[in-house]
């Protein structure tokens, strides 16, 4: 009898778990709705103070900042997001060290080019800052449309759909990471990644090609664009 009750309990729990995964019922937040998001960096706080937006925030309860949101010298929101996409199995240390090494390689490669260049005008054009290169690469790889499969009249159609900024960033960063992983066994991820980042920042290379291919496919499938509605 007791085993039956246990079984029932287990099934009940299982069904509850399924509910979470469906995504229709979200988990409750730790914070009530009046809590606002923290602003971790000093520069952003200063901007808020200058514009006067900080006034209402001063009297509201604020959520605790995430431990990877800080005001350290090497903090950057894009880099933080990149770390999170790069992380596998919760190993953030590894993700950080890999991207740091990729940055070092980018800098070494760009500085070698910088010192080799003799024409001062061309020299000024070379970007040697790895952070700027990452920003440029991520910006250049963002797609405008993606194909989403939609069922209409018993058949699935690949329908081009516009995406949000967040989704575009997700695509861009993950394509970059995949391109870095697509390498010979003998070479390292950070070596490959440095090349991919520099290429993408100059609007060429494999990731940019992938984006353009997707855009072409969207263009070809524009006849299905109206399946977006209804």
């Amino acid at each position: 009898m007791s085993s039956l009750i246990l079984k029932l309990q287990f099934q009940l729990l299982k069904s509850c778990n399924n509910l979470w995964t469906i995504g229709q019922i979200s988990k409750y937040s730790q914070y009530s709705k009046q809590y606002v998001n923290p602003v971790p960096t000093k520069q952003d706080q200063q901007l808020l103070e200058e514009s006067g937006e900080i006034k209402p925030l001063k009297f509201l309860p604020i959520k605790a900042a995430c431990n990877n949101e800080n005001s350290l010298y090497n903090y950057d929101p894009v880099v933080r997001k990149f770390h999170n996409f790069l992380m596998r199995g919760g190993n953030k240390d590894l993700a950080r060290s890999l991207l740091d090494k990729a940055f070092e390689n980018v800098k070494r490669m760009q500085l070698a080019r910088y010192h080799k260049e003799t024409d001062p005008e061309e020299k000024a054009k070379i970007i040697t800052d790895p952070l700027k290169i990452l920003h440029k690469a991520v910006e250049n790889c963002k797609p405008l449309l993606v194909l989403i499969s939609v069922k209409r009249g018993g058949a699935y159609y690949q329908v081009p759909m516009p995406i949000r900024e967040t989704t575009a960033t997700f695509y861009s960063m993950n394509w970059l990471i995949e391109a870095g992983s697509d390498k010979a066994r003998t070479s390292r991820w950070h070596d490959r990644m440095a090349i991919e980042l520099i290429d993408a920042s100059e609007n060429k290379g494999r990731v940019i090609k992938r984006k353009q291919d997707l855009h072409k496919q969207c263009e070809a499938n524009r006849a299905y664009a109206h399946y977006r509605w209804g």
């Binding site: 952003d44 929101p77 910006e139 900024e165 967040t166």
Partner: peptide
């Protein structure tokens, strides 16, 4: 379809603004 100016219509002003370059 994929002209750059159009992107501004689709891009929604979210907290991702912080992430823009």
């Amino acid at each position: 379809l994929i002209l750059r100016p159009l992107k501004k219509i689709w891009a929604l002003p979210t907290q991702m603004r912080l992430f823009s370059s």
